[in-house]
């Protein structure tokens, strides 16, 4: 099977009916995408599939063939992307287990909406459960990242 992940085409030995999450974490070794519930509830396994945020635990590998996949490992090019840096600086990550999925959901938002308000940010990450932060600092980090991406002060 061929999967296009983070801009690279991979040949993988995997059943097309395997969950995409298992193929990413197993044969592809991309363990940044996490499993928290296995039923599309926690959002820890959020990836972009052709630009849309989806739960990798609910997508079968065969369904992702021919699509462009982005995981947390694809966010940083050399140095941290502004979104990642803001999560670190502003307290957006605590235990970190929800962070990869949260970043991907935020990335999907910021690609569509350059200057989201609080309500739009909260809605965009409502499928990503965080048990540590209370969300305020995640919201702040995403808002901050939007400013940095727009060329504003970091």
């Amino acid at each position: 099977m061929k999967l296009q992940v983070n801009g690279v085409m991979h040949e993988v030995e995997a059943s097309p009916t395997a969950r995409l999450l298992d193929v990413l974490r197993g044969p592809l070794g991309l363990t940044g995408t996490k499993e928290g519930c296995g039923e599309g509830e926690c959002g820890s396994c959020t990836i972009l599939l052709d630009g849309l945020p989806v739960n990798a635990c609910l997508v079968l590998a065969g369904q992702a063939e021919g699509a462009e996949i982005l995981t947390v490992e694809g966010l940083a090019a050399g140095q941290l992307a502004p979104l990642q840096q803001c999560f670190v600086d502003d307290g957006g990550a605590q235990c970190g287990i929800c962070t990869p999925g949260m970043l991907i959901a935020a990335e999907a938002l910021l690609r569509r909406n350059k200057a989201p308000d609080d309500a739009e940010i909260r809605e965009a990450i409502a499928g990503n459960i965080c048990r540590c932060t209370g969300y305020q600092r995640i919201v702040d980090a995403i808002k901050h990242a939007a400013v940095v991406r727009a060329g504003g002060a970091s």
């Binding site: 599309g40 599939l49 997508v59 959901a105 809605e123 965009a124 409502a126 499928g127």
Partner: peptide
């Protein structure tokens, strides 16, 4: 319906 990840699928 769910949240965006579920709506997208």
């Amino acid at each position: 319906v769910g949240a965006i990840q579920i709506q997208a699928r």
